[in-house]
Each structure stands twice: as structure tokens, then as C-alpha cells.
Nucleic acid binder design. Structure first.
Lengths: 203, 203
DNA sequence: AATGTTATCTAACGACTGTTAGGGAGGGCG
DNA sequence: CGCCCTCCCTAACAGTCGTTAGATAACATT
């Protein structure tokens, strides 16, 4: 891809995720990229097209990661116990919830989902429905194998995911996204995950 | 308070909570209130002052409700068991998390907290810190009385509050805030609360 | 050398932004 | 009546917005 075009996308995501789509002007982006406003329109049809391309890229990343996770559910039962935990943490947590690009998109979606119906749907799908559905599947599987005694897998998914979501919200919106904050978020989340499975074994 | 001024505040909150502060112009507000732009500046110093007054009103409501809740913790042990649950549900849930005015403010805070440090602090305080601290106190109390066996009261608070926060997020941002959605949110939350205390008794 | 393509520029367009100066209608009060 | 105060108005300000027309320079192809 063209170097300037990529630069525009990078800067746009940076600014959009900090101030929101409508609060950032083409001129704001151009100041950082160091080009004139009209040059943007050589690479993009209009301002909306920049946003569309950013979202499309995010969705392709998220789709890839989620497909990888879904596959982890289909391997043989023996490998499940070893693989599932690692895969979930790596794919969903590190490469998604804590990934820099995804983080910026999530911040952007959080702002814009109120006034933009399309972005609201993307947010709900990738932040609520998809993770909760996946976790529900995971718990259904663990129940069917017998690792967990009979329970409401959907409610289990909520109990598992909700604290992670809460920690993520605190992490994503604590001003500057420092490594220190990131470590704090990671610590909280992993502690919860460990606690959760410990309690689960008891039941 | 002046009728026109109140009308401006009402309409402003409506529009701000739907589109965000910077995306709503003075003229947008005036169209709905049916006055001219300059009239706004008779009642308010500038656009920011409208926002400030809305936030100040919210904080006075929230402070009142939280004080009421804190008081419920200080009554004698005998009445605690009967009162605490009812008070928490009524004050925190119905009059705060599900109150129309508070809902609109929360939506507004959600958008603006990214670009506005002051609003980020208000959000974190009233949506994260204050409720979690209160719930921690509640569980500490229940532990000290002996209703709950020894446990990490802070983590208990997270496990209790996080699903409610998640349901609230789904409710607040599902487009049109219909009564149907509201009932769905209430149902999910109460089910969780009941489940939570049922599991607690078992431990 | 002439031509076409790519990527940028200058300069401006009309629309919209927050805000202000100044005027006028209505009522209460001396 | 004359004066002040409240509340709203008309009209305009300077600045910003997304976007476009057209020129220009660098480079590749003919």
C-alpha cells in the first residue's frame, strides 16, 4: 500500500480514537502527516472512507482471530484441556483485548456507537455477542465432557467475561495507555481467570 | 428556575447524550427549544456552561443517593439483613442505574470521557470506583457479621458488580431506550443478583 | 523529445461553528 | 411619565469544516 495512504490511516486512527470521528478534522490529520488537505482526497473518496477502511481492517483481524479460536474447540477432547486455556488467553486476550490496534478501534467504537448505528452494531457484535457466544460454547463443551458439573453455560459465560470486560474498560479509558496500566489490567484479568477456574473445579 | 433555561438544559442533555457534546451545535438545541441562538447566551455564559450545569446536577443527585446507601450500612445489625438488599436495589439500581436522567448522563460521559479528562474522572468515580467501593464495604460487613465466610471482599464486589455493569452497557447502548429493553435489562440484573446471593449462602 | 501517469500542491467554494453587539418589547417601580 | 430590568430578537463577526477545480512537478513509457 502507498506510504502516504498508510500514514493517513495510522494518524487518523490515532486521532479518531482519542477524540472521536467528528471531532477530528481532515486538517488535523494533515498537520500530523504533513500534507495538504486536498492530498487526502487523492487517496480517499471522502472523510468517511478513511473510517470505513479502518473498520474493515479491524473486522478482518477480529474475524481471523475468532476463527482460530473456534477451531480450537473442534480438536479432540484430549488436547482440549491443554490447548483451550492457552489459546483463549493468547488469541482473545493478548492479540485482541490488549492489542494496540484493536484497543484504538475499541475506543473509537465506544464513542461513535451512540450516534452511528453501524458502529453500534460492530461494537455489540465484537465486544458483547461474539465473545459471550464463544465462552458459552466453551462452557457447554466443558460441561459435556464432564469437567464442569451441569450448569447454565450462558450465565457462566457472563460471570467469566463480565469482570474481564470491566477491567478492560478501566484499562482502555484511564487516560494515557501506559505499560504500567496495561500490566495492571493483565494482572487483574489473569487473577480473575485463575480464580474462576479454581472455583469451578470445586463445584 | 427559568422555564426557558430549563428547556435548554433538557434539550441539551437529550441531544448531547445522543450525539456527544461537540457534535451538537447551539443552533441544534435552539431549533428544538424554538429560540434564537443569542438567547442561549442570556442564560449561559457559553456552550461549556450548559454541560457544566448538567454534570453538576447529576453529581448532586448521585451524591444524595450514595449518601443514603452509606447510611444503610450504619444501622444496627438486626435491620441490616432486611434493609440492605431492598435499599441497594432501590437506591442504586432503580434510582441510579436505571434512572432516565442518570442514563442520559452516563451515555454522555461515555462519549466524552475520551477527549475530556474532567469527564473521564467523573465517569471513573461514579461508574467504577464509588459502586465498587460501596459493594466492597457491603461484603466486608456481611463477612464480619458472619453471613458470608471469609473471602476477598474486593473481588466479591467485582464479581457482583461486573455483570450488572455489562448488562447496563448493553441496555444503555442498544439504540432506542425502549421499555422492552429496560425490562430485559432489569430481568437479567435481578436474576444475577438472586443467583449471586444463592451461591453465597452455599459457601 | 513528447506524452501520460502519479502524487502533490495552491486557492477557493459554501456551509456551519461559537459568540457578540445592539435593539426592542414587556413589566415593575419611582 | 421616565427608568430600569428581564428576556428575547436581528444581524453579523471571524473562524473552521468537508470538499473541489486546476496547476505543477517528478517520473515512466512511447
Amino acid at each position: 500500500m502507498n506510504e502516504t495512504k498508510q500514514k493517513i490511516l495510522d494518524v487518523a486512527l490515532d486521532l479518531f480514537s482519542q477524540n472521536g470521528f467528528s471531532a477530528v478534522s481532515i486538517r488535523d490529520i494533515c498537520k500530523v502527516v504533513d500534507i495538504k488537505e486536498s492530498s487526502v482526497y487523492y487517496h480517499f473518496k471522502n472523510k468517511q472512507a478513511i473510517l470505513d477502511e479502518l473498520l474493515q481492517h479491524f473486522e478482518s483481524i477480529a474475524t481471523g482471530l475468532m476463527n482460530q479460536l473456534e477451531q480450537a474447540l473442534t480438536i479432540t477432547q484430549k488436547t482440549i484441556e491443554e490447548n483451550l486455556f492457552e489459546q483463549t488467553c493468547d488469541c482473545f486476550f493478548e492479540k485482541y483485548l490488549m492489542d494496540e490496534y484493536c484497543n484504538k478501534i475499541m475506543r473509537l467504537l465506544s464513542i461513535e456507537r451512540l450516534s452511528n448505528y453501524e458502529m453500534q452494531e460492530i461494537y455489540n457484535y465484537w465486544i458483547f455477542d461474539k465473545p459471550l457466544n464463544f465462552q458459552t460454547k466453551v462452557f457447554s463443551l466443558l460441561i459435556s465432557i464432564g469437567i464442569i458439573k451441569t450448569a447454565d453455560s450462558k450465565y457462566l459465560a457472563v460471570k467469566f467475561y463480565a469482570p474481564i470486560y470491566l477491567f478492560a474498560q478501566q484499562w482502555l479509558f484511564c487516560g494515557t495507555l501506559t505499560d504500567e496500566h496495561k500490566q495492571f489490567f493483565r494482572g487483574n484479568a489473569y487473577e480473575h481467570i485463575n480464580n474462576f477456574f479454581k472455583e469451578m473445579e470445586g463445584i
